[in-house]
Design a protein around this nucleic acid. Structure first.
Lengths: 382, 382
DNA sequence: CAGAGTGATGTATGCGCTTACAGGCAGCGC
DNA sequence: GCGCTGCCTGTAAGCGCATACATCACTCTG
């Protein structure tokens, strides 16, 4: 059936510019397709002379093994995937926030790519189009051995169906709000503890009592966790709600951060002593807005962020923040996937909570040189 | 041959946790596999009632079409690829430069991902491991419909063979130093003209005559082009070589930038009036080093960068630089690939040179508000 | 020198899907 | 009533590779 000697079924391969296949290489080097395959899969099992002939023919033809065929026959692709949300507005390609917004998912991509490569995998990435085709996950899922999904990127039910049959790890977000997904591996960071530590630092070490939390976007479990940490620290310090209000912003961009800064400054003279932002981008925006208003940081007001993006170190004053190990998150995700792929399926789902570190810099009044402290590393299973 | 009724050949599918296939869905919904396939490929060609049944069965089974099988049968994968160099040192995971170094390839990834998604493609990325397996390209090439390669990521001959049969576009670097690759599409930015314009700005508008160029790494055609632009501007202004020396650094990191700044400051009192860096990272490193030395920018010395990374806007003083449209570069690459994939093969190779823009900010003595100028947009074919 | 053992290669099948092509079955005009 | 036309569905043949198994040419052992 697969003879290459001019049978009409393979006429296509006589077309000049077709992509060469094992059959072409086999014919040209005078061996069978099995031998060609072996040259690539297990070179040692082929006599050296034969191998050379085959490789020479392959080189002349520009032959590259088809990943599709290989994957189909061997039932594995050697590719891992990542689905992440596309936060950016496609119309504001060169806008300021566009670049900055990139950092979070980029670091994860980088971490995953790096770890994947270590394990011999490539990485397939796909951002979910805002209101785009739902089949995104399916597209990815159908081409990879396993994949990671950033929280709230994919409809729960779809994810549930897919994840029944292949390894999926969830990134960020809560452990598994939805019980139908609690069999998934999961990687998150210690959002609550990190924000708790940072807030505690402001209260204890700097003696601040009037704090404002900014960035409580609904539906973001990460931000909710951070807010819980903030409230817990306030509560423990005996600061009542009135002194620790929260500002809910619709987005977490630099522009919103600037807007929030203005709002807080115009609050009838009782400006909070500290603006505690839910992420670095907003804090950076606020820093710039405050500079324009002539409000000095940290002398007049303390500002903190969350994430530890590179910018946070470079703005002036440098931003006190909580560093998230985003690259590592990607790496851990890949490690989990690889473990699932090589291990026996019946294994307990794993949930990793990566430690975060409070980074004390100038924007809270600390010296840049101060040693960072580490908050609550923890790993749990089940 | 493909009956699912218990023939021993398909026994595997009776195993509990196997990944479901068209056969399983077909059996469960009482149709043939062709109909299942049609439900996904051309839903309108299937009666609504039948479609529902099939989708219901698919949902219950957690069925996802195999991208491998689909790709094999339809001879296209719906995936585009990118091979990029991995500049980062794997041992310095949390080092400063690690984050910053990310920006260049990341922006391209982002641009490609975005454009790919617009065209219905996913993106497969793979960094070339330093001294790693050569088959990287092959791995990618075998799984995609077409791909982009960042300059000097892939051995020429390998690329030549592969690119004979499928679309490849080259990113950055010179048009095609190697004539065996001159059939490739190519996207680059106007490095020389950008650096020329920037240098000219320093000479004409700020009256500087003593400039030092930093970052002439050998083997980087982009940096070489920039240096040519620098020299051309100097030459035209009648500045002789002695007044415009060049410092060759082995890397283009922030640390190297800082080192370069120190070297230039210790040059026996005749410190240059301007440090012209080949990229933003070095310039940012220099900025910090100079601040520590108590050298004021731009009052004591002017500093400029190249790239227009987000940091450049946020450091103080904000960095005068040349903005490269890196995201757009990725998008253009994808557009070229898509065009090749949908068009008739016999089409002239295309070379795009994307325009860059001089961004005048505080580090050269300009106000941040100054309007950026644009250097030499151009597009050529052939 | 026969038979067992070994290494290199060929043969044949199927991985899960797409897609021409072929059929079945309505409704239509004649 | 008959053939025709369209619509829907089934049949079957690969897509390019991996791999179990068969084959073949030798070498080795007794």
């Amino acid at each position: 059936m697969h003879q290459r000697d001019g049978g009409p079924t393979h006429e296509r391969h006589r077309i000049v510019n077709a992509i060469p296949t094992v059959y072409d290489v086999a014919e040209r080097s005078g061996v069978s397709i099995a031998t060609v395959s072996r040259v690539y899969r297990s070179p040692d099992s082929v006599r050296a002379a034969t191998r050379e002939r085959v490789l020479a023919a392959a080189g002349e033809l520009g032959y590259v093994p088809s990943g599709n065929a290989r994957g189909l026959a061997s039932r594995s692709t050697g590719v891992l995937g990542l689905c992440f949300p596309d936060y950016s507005d496609p119309d504001t390609l060169d806008a300021e926030d566009d670049d900055a917004a990139m950092l979070y998912s980029d670091q994860i991509i980088r971490g995953m790519e790096r770890a994947a490569r270590r394990h011999g995998y490539a990485l397939l990435i796909a951002a979910s189009l805002e209101g785009g085709p739902e089949n995104l996950v399916a597209q990815v899922a159908g081409r990879v051995d396993g994949f990671a999904v950033m929280a709230r990127t994919v409809p729960t039910e779809e994810l549930e169906a897919i994840s029944r049959r292949r390894p999926v790890v969830m990134l960020a977000g809560p452990r598994a709000k939805d019980p139908s997904l609690d069999h998934l591996d999961h990687v998150e960071v210690a959002n609550e503890d990190g924000q708790y530590e940072l807030t505690r630092h402001l209260v204890h070490d700097h003696g601040l009592r009037h704090l404002a939390y900014v960035g409580l976007v609904d539906e973001s479990p990460d931000v909710e966790a951070r807010f819980r940490g903030f409230r817990r620290a306030c509560h423990e310090a005996g600061i009542e709600a009135a002194a620790a209000p929260a500002l809910r912003m619709p987005m977490m961009t630099q522009a919103e951060g600037a807007r929030a800064a203005h709002l807080l400054c115009e609050g009838d003279g009782d400006r909070p002593e500290a603006f505690v932002f839910a992420n670095d981008q907003m804090a950076v925006g606020a820093l710039q807005a405050l500079e324009r208003r002539g409000v000095r940081v940290p002398d007049d007001v303390v500002v903190t962020g969350f994430d530890g993006i590179p910018l946070s170190r470079l703005v002036r004053p440098a931003l006190t923040t909580v560093r998230q190990p985003m690259v590592r998150m990607g790496e851990e995700a890949v490690d989990l996937l690889v473990r699932r792929l090589s291990g026996q399926p019946p294994e307990e789902p794993v949930s990793l909570m990566l430690p975060v570190g409070v980074v004390r810099r100038a924007s809270c009044g600390c010296d840049e040189a101060t040693t960072p402290s580490t908050a609550t590393p923890s790993t749990m299973t089940g």
